[in-house]
Design a protein around this nucleic acid. Sequence first.
DNA 1: ACAAAAGTGTTTTGGGTACACCCATGT
DNA 2: ACATGGGTGTACCCAAAACACTTTTGT
Lengths: 250, 250
Amino acid sequence: MLTELEINNFAFETIPTISVDCVIFGYDNSMLKMLVRREFIPMDGKIHVEWKLPGNQVRRTENIDETASRILKEQTGLENIFVKQFMVFSDPNRLKTRPQDFEWIKPRLKDERVITVGFYSLVNLSDVDNSTLVEDANWANAYEVTELMFDHNEIFDEALKKLRYDLLHDPLVFELLPEKFTLTQMQKLYEAIFNVSFDKRNYRRKVNKMTYLIPLDEIQTGVSHKPARLYSFDRDIYEKTRTERFDFRV
Amino acid sequence: MLTELEINNFAFETIPTISVDCVIFGYDNSMLKMLVRREFIPMDGKIHVEWKLPGNQVRRTENIDETASRILKEQTGLENIFVKQFMVFSDPNRLKTRPQDFEWIKPRLKDERVITVGFYSLVNLSDVDNSTLVEDANWANAYEVTELMFDHNEIFDEALKKLRYDLLHDPLVFELLPEKFTLTQMQKLYEAIFNVSFDKRNYRRKVNKMTYLIPLDEIQTGVSHKPARLYSFDRDIYEKTRTERFDFRV
DNA sequence: ACAAAAGTGTTTTGGGTACACCCATGT
DNA sequence: ACATGGGTGTACCCAAAACACTTTTGT
């Protein structure tokens, strides 16, 4: 029989040699952003300032999706957000390519060899209460990512590739849009993530065929131009009408 | 200074809490197959006969792709074969859902919690010397997979999904075809893997646009019908002419 | 009246799909 | 001569892409 303390200790205990790193994408004002964390590393008599992806170790009681959701909650305060694993990074020297990186992580390790699972996630920045954002966190422009610790630039590159692929095949856009949105907001979001631009008429013809995009009896307010109609996404209709060969490409 | 023995021990030492499992697909005679291994598990006074995917632990000196290639070499004798990671399986209870599974793996564990990385691979069965095939290994019909140990049925299902997806986007078919092949052999291969059939004329019109499919001045011999022209795959031309939006779909 | 974004149709081009017959070879 | 798979062309439909003007609102 375990005491309550022992049970708690077990619940929070992490397993060695594996971790989870998250690329958290956010969208705001036509810009695609990503969350990075700052670390101060004292070494050789000076303080190194470095940036990294948020990450953590895996607890004995959770699967890796739960680890990723936990990281997301810690960093953004948000729960029930879509997270998706996309690749494992396992270079035996991945923690040791730069001395300051290893200096930072050494006291946190149970084993010097750690394999990490990359996750990406999508949040709507208007949902994030930036006043509660962890102090050393920052939303960086996803197209101007600076040098990150460890293999985190490689992890980011793969995340962006996978995000783009998945957006073409799953209704992920709606994770980033508000409940009610205009067709132009939706178009701008695709354009930001793919760094391209679409013809408005062709774009609208295409999305008008999507039966799960519901036109509401409601229009924009507070804009100094012709107000646009609002739409919402009906996940039930989407699930019922999606076909095996469905191509979400816009 | 380490002795040679100590260096060797380190080289073969494996890391805890992570493993690699391989779904090895093989093609032969219009059939898609997969490699499974038999295990005999004595428990409760009887011998359980169970099947599982080939898998192994990760050595301290290798990355997970090297682990997968090593498993492939052990099982099929083949080297330099394409292997691809597709998903991580991390349910905290994945080793314990059936008592006989855990009984088998228990003596092999450094830690009761193991997260596994799923890989798939493709081999041409005419390249495999079946006389050297490990005794307890068997090429099973990929469309009639029986119950496997642990979460290996789930791993297989995901592997087949990923294989099909990748075949539509990368020149993977050529891993399964001989050096020189006919267009019908290629078509039959797609049909076996996707479990569908294509119209011969439409299929040929499509592949004729692929500039990296080189028609040879050579035809089939030893067949009792009009001999077909042989083709080969030119990877250089493929790499040079492939575009971002290229769609390999047939 | 002006600025700013909403909204709307037509034409051209290329790919997907459906469909049936003759050809070259071995036996 | 026959059986077997090899090899070919045409017509229809639909989706993608290119392209410009009018409408509605706030200021």
